[in-house]
Amino acid sequence: MALTIGIIGLPQSGKTTLFNALTKSNAPISGYATTTVQANLAVVPVPDPRVDALAEIFQPKKKTYTTVEFVDVAGMGQAGAAGKDKQEGLSPEFLGHIRNADALAIVLRTFANENVPHIYNTIDPNRDLDSLNAELALTDLSTVERRIERTKKAAKSGDKKYLQELELLQRLKETLEDMQLARTLEFSQQDQAVLNELFLLTMKPRMYVLNTSEDMLATANELLEKIRAGENVQIDALQGEAKGFAQIAQRAREEGAEVVAVSAKLEAELNELPQEEANEYLEALGLPQLGADRVIQVGYRLLNLITFLTAGEDEVRAWTVTRGAKAPEAAGKIHTDIEKGFIRAEVTSFDDFMACGSFAAAAKKGVQRLEGRDYVIQDGDIAHFRFNKGK
């Protein structure tokens, strides 16, 4: 399962700089809103020190990380940039690049720089988020209105299914007309089938990526942690970038979204350094890891994903599953035949394996377990699946 994250934001927010830092690409940077339908795409491995540690032990022919696909689309906010009287939502071509994304990374600029003008002339991430939400809502509204026309025709048959669908679509329409996110509504299990067909952008899990100035990163991380933990932060008493951090963090907490602070400019500069020098510089700034790595980790947490491992002389590999997946489903990530013929799983936690140094020692110590069909895979499990090849 490859996680796909769509990166969106206003022009000059630093989203393409962030994309380049995340993917070590050299995508061209545009300083204005554009109607281009092109997008930057890249698939990158997810850093996982557990894979590296196991590879040191097994010396496999191959080691494979899980991957994330990033999709960076052109700058939004066309109304503000192009002088239109009203926003019209995203074009179908533009929408096509991000409608299948698992989550959205919404880049919000908090840094000031006279050499990098803002399309609204002032720095206000809270306002920028409102603008982006409005454009996403209008895009979804167009999708819902088209579906309403189609469903109305089908409902003439009197089929209860279509009448119920119309009720759902009308609720969505009213919410989106108020420039509210569709995900703020409550839905029944029956509604999900229709929602899955609509690919609404305002239904997608989201993270807010605060693109900060380098010297404010530590302050940003401190504030985000306090608000995430539910501490009482006097937002109105804050000023400048700090106030922007806190406002977005509070919104994220209320929405059940995630938020991470990075300096896209710093990330780009660190990518030019040897790894050892980059790590030393990060340590000097009091940062445990690159913002790019934190964006990926937040994406996993947002989508409730975990990683299990397989290890041997042929390959050490990381695999992604949804938290709560049972052993047969995890086995199916490797091959559908293994899921169909599943017998049981030999499971050792990564920490237990590293403490023992080998599967044989783990089995002898009793920390290698045989688990059945109902076993729920845990993050960091090293699994070997036994299966009936005849099934």
Rank of each mutant, 00 (worst) to 15 (best):
A252M: 04
A360C: 04
V73T: 08
R147L: 00
P328H: 04
V44S: 08
E346P: 10
V68E: 05
F353D: 08
T310L: 02
G244F: 03
V233I: 12
P47F: 09
L172F: 07
R127D: 03
E339L: 12
L138A: 10
Q192T: 14
L290N: 08
E88T: 13
L95H: 07
A21Q: 00
N121W: 12
E272N: 05
N232D: 12
G324Y: 11
L224T: 03
E329L: 14
N232K: 13
Q297A: 13
K365N: 03
S13D: 10
F187E: 06
T175D: 08
D352R: 07
Y208C: 04
Q368K: 13
I106P: 07
L210W: 01
E269W: 12
E315G: 15
A363T: 11
V347Q: 05
V262Q: 00
L22M: 12
P28Y: 14
V71D: 04
L217I: 10
I343Y: 15
D102E: 14
G312D: 12
L10C: 10
G312C: 15
R183V: 06
A112S: 11
Q368D: 05
G75A: 12
I334P: 02
Q12K: 14
A327T: 05
G312L: 06
A105I: 10
Q289E: 13
I334H: 03
L166H: 04
I248M: 04
G240L: 03
K365G: 08
L41S: 05
T64C: 13
A361F: 00
T17Y: 10
P11H: 12
F350D: 00
L302S: 08
T64Q: 15
E231V: 09
L217D: 01
N232C: 09
A101G: 05
H335C: 10
V107Q: 07
R301E: 00
I334Q: 01
E114T: 09
A284T: 15
D102S: 11
Q247F: 10
G299T: 06
N113S: 15
T184S: 12
R253V: 03
